[in-house]
Design a protein around this nucleic acid. Structure first.
Length: 107
DNA sequence: CGCATGACCTACG
DNA sequence: TCGTAGGCCATGC
């Protein structure tokens, strides 16, 4: 069982219509403070893996831009909206499903 | 082995 | 709201 496998397992447990942050996934995967590894694991994830990668957003409740183009970003938002996730005016996800508080990871 | 890079996070200007 | 700084660590050169 590698770190990535545990990360994927946690993401697979995210209910439809809800989202989790990189930091939260890292915490649940037994890797506190290593949110960056979650992002790295997702970057290494093949397209058809069955992992709901779209349900992982950053600590600000926004879709993280990544290399490869803004098209993926738009696709992720579209997929989430189709699952019932609401986005606010500023492009952020409404706090109803985002009410937890991450612990200090930096400084 | 050293160095740079990256779907991150928080604090501070 | 944006940019910078410091910390985490896997991966590639």
């Amino acid at each position: 069982m590698t770190r990535y496998d545990r990360i994927y397992a946690v993401i697979r447990r995210i209910p439809r219509g809800r989202v989790a942050t990189y930091g939260q996934v890292a915490l649940l995967a037994g890797l506190p403070g290593q949110a960056r590894m979650v992002g790295y694991a997702l970057a290494a994830l093949p397209g058809r893996s069955g992992v709901p990668w779209q349900r992982v957003v950053n600590a600000q409740g926004r879709v993280s831009p990544r290399a490869g183009g803004a098209g993926f970003e738009a696709l992720q938002r579209a997929m989430l909206r189709r699952e019932g996730v609401r986005f606010g005016d500023s492009g952020g996800i409404s706090l109803a499903i985002f009410r937890w508080r991450p612990r200090a990871a930096g400084r």
